[in-house]
């Protein structure tokens, strides 16, 4: 499937910021069933290229915006061809071994409720994949899709207790539960082309390491394994590692964020 992504993020600042530093993880690693025809990232019209990779293998770049501009516009334009691999990403060449991804993080530590959910859906007779599908479905059942109830710093346990959240909350809870069952699991940020002409947000889902298959994608928000409509961009232990944009700024008052993503089928 040919996918065109046009992703614009505009950061507005109440007062003119003195200086904004951002780290961008907006470039996919080639391979894994994705052919990249074009991938271009601009900040205020200036093209940015990744200059190194982080420990997870994600291409990264940083930029500094200085001076009295009261807004900052980030634009991603990409043309990608994808295949449906039924979620199976397989054995990727990573610097970090799957065993590293079994350890919880601050955002994905399992509390009693997550442990109960994880063990409640575990059935001995099932295959790992079947069990993980049930777990993914349980996460979706327990957390309603409700934007603006959580933010990127909301821990999994809190999102589950609130029973509401967005895709990164679904991902964090599934990560916490899968790791509690001993499965290495990682966070994926990327894009989802939900249907032609549709305007969607960038998306987040999970990959879980299953013996024999390698990494297998699970999208708890949509209760499926990622297919040809998904474009993988960055991975990490949780949102903090794989965030498309991390920023620090000096001055600038209150920051507001506007995102417009157009992921289209072509």
């Amino acid at each position: 499937m040919q996918i065109v992504i046009d992703h614009t993020t505009t950061y507005r600042y109440g007062d003119a910021p003195l200086r904004v530093h951002q780290a961008l993880r907006l470039w996919p690693v080639p391979g894994g069933g994705q052919v990249i025809y074009e991938w271009r990232v601009d900040v205020d019209g200036r093209k940015i290229r990744p200059t190194s990779r982080d420990g997870f293998g994600n291409p990264v770049a940083t930029h500094v915006a200085e001076g009295p501009s009261a807004a900052l516009r980030l634009h991603v334009h990409a043309e990608v061809e994808t295949l449906d691999r039924h979620g199976v990403v397989g054995h990727t060449e990573d610097s970090l071994p799957p065993a590293f991804f079994v350890h919880p993080t601050l955002l994905t530590s399992a509390d009693a409720a997550i442990l109960e959910m994880a063990h409640g859906t575990a059935r001995d007779s099932e295959s790992d994949v079947a069990r993980l599908h049930r777990l993914s479905a349980a996460v979706r059942e327990r957390i309603d899709y409700q934007p603006l109830t959580t933010d990127v710093a909301t821990p999994a346990a809190e999102a589950l207790a609130a029973g509401a959240g967005v895709c990164q909350d679904h991902a964090h809870v599934l990560l916490a539960a899968a790791r509690a069952l001993g499965h290495p699991a990682r966070y994926v940020s990327g894009y989802l082309c939900a249907s032609a002409e549709q305007i969607a947000a960038s998306h987040a889902w999970v990959e879980i390491y299953v013996e024999g298959l390698g990494w297998v994608g699970f999208d708890p928000a949509n209760q499926i394994c990622p297919d040809e409509r998904y474009v993988r961009v960055a991975t990490g232990r949780d949102y903090r590692d794989a965030a498309p944009v991390r920023g620090v700024r000096v001055g600038g008052g209150i920051e507001s964020l506007e995102v417009l993503v157009r992921v289209g089928d072509q």
Binding site: H21, Q22, A23, T62, V64, R246, V248
Partner: peptide, 21 residues
């Protein structure tokens, strides 16, 4: 603060990325 604790005022934003580069 771009790579580790985001609320650190002691560090240098982007130093880790210059290091990796």
């Amino acid at each position: 603060p771009l790579a580790f604790r985001e609320n650190s005022l002691l560090g240098v934003p982007g130093l880790y990325f210059a290091y990796r580069a």
